[in-house]
């Protein structure tokens, strides 16, 4: 579904990503792992056009989307739940969700999806009229994910959904992602929390200092003690 060919991302003289190629197939869940500052956020931001792709090609379903404006890429059916959640703090939960569906014309479908996700995230129904700034970190993360889903994407990218959340809440978030997986949603998951991510993912990539150091099956990565230890600071299984 999504193919990256030798993608470079630079901010002026600073090179954040140096030639990464990867592929996400339809229905698959891919984990993108790596230490802090490895370029993970830059890479997913470049896919949706929020970071400048200085070289390389990004394809969605075969169509070249490199350099297209963010809003057009999103309407093609791929979206990103950004790092740090970025919910609209002054808007209510309901208004946030409404904006998530802003690019859609099918009113009935939107109402239907809203019902689905309020079912899936009961806390959002409970706090529907509250301003997003009043929500806890975990609740805001759920809102951010639900808001992304409201655009009915073919593929969802999540940037560090567990960042800064209590372990119990992290478990909730991953439970939810497992639920989305069972619905067949294609996902690219950026995580520091490697173990949890690999339990969920079909395949995985590891980047460090802007370059790819591993690409393959999630299970293989788990088995490779070396990579796990060197780049992710974890004991392999």
């Amino acid at each position: 579904m999504l193919q990256l060919e030798n993608v470079h991302v630079s901010y002026g003289p600073i090179k954040a990503v140096r030639g990464v190629s990867l592929e996400v197939k339809g229905g698959e869940i891919v984990a993108l792992l790596g230490p802090n500052g490895a370029g993970k956020t830059s890479l997913v931001s470049s896919v949706v056009g929020l970071a400048p792709t200085s070289a390389g090609k990004i394809r969605l379903d075969g169509a070249d989307i490199t350099g297209e404006p963010t809003e057009r890429i999103v309407t093609r059916g791929i979206t990103l739940t950004p790092e740090g959640r970025r919910v609209f703090a002054d808007l209510t939960v309901g208004e946030n969700l409404q904006l998530g569906a802003a690019c859609r014309k099918d009113r009935d479908g939107v109402a239907e999806d809203l019902e689905t996700y309020l079912e899936l995230f009961p806390i959002l129904r409970k706090r529907y009229a509250a301003r997003a700034r009043m929500l806890s970190g975990g609740e805001q993360q759920m809102l951010a994910i639900a808001r992304s889903l409201m655009s009915r994407p073919k593929m969802l990218m999540l940037d560090e959904p567990s960042l800064g959340l209590a372990p119990r809440v992290v478990d909730q978030i991953f439970e939810l992602l497992h639920g989305l997986r069972s619905k067949g949603l294609t996902m690219l998951l950026v995580e520091q929390n490697a173990n949890e991510a690999l339990d969920l993912a079909d395949s995985a990539y590891v980047i460090a200092s802007g370059s790819l150091v591993f690409g393959g099956k999630a299970a293989d990565l788990k088995a490779s003690g070396e990579v796990m230890e060197m780049y992710l600071g974890l004991e392999g299984h």
């Binding site: 949706v48 929020l50 809003e71 999103v74 950004p82 970025r86 802003a102 808001r147």
Partner: peptide, 24 residues
């Protein structure tokens, strides 16, 4: 209105508004 909500949201965070598929 959706565009009104988008304007309020854009006052704080334009990139995320664009992530909603709304044209800046």
């Amino acid at each position: 209105t959706t565009v009104g909500l988008a304007m309020r949201a854009a006052a704080k965070d334009v990139p995320t508004v664009r992530l909603m598929g709304i044209k800046a």
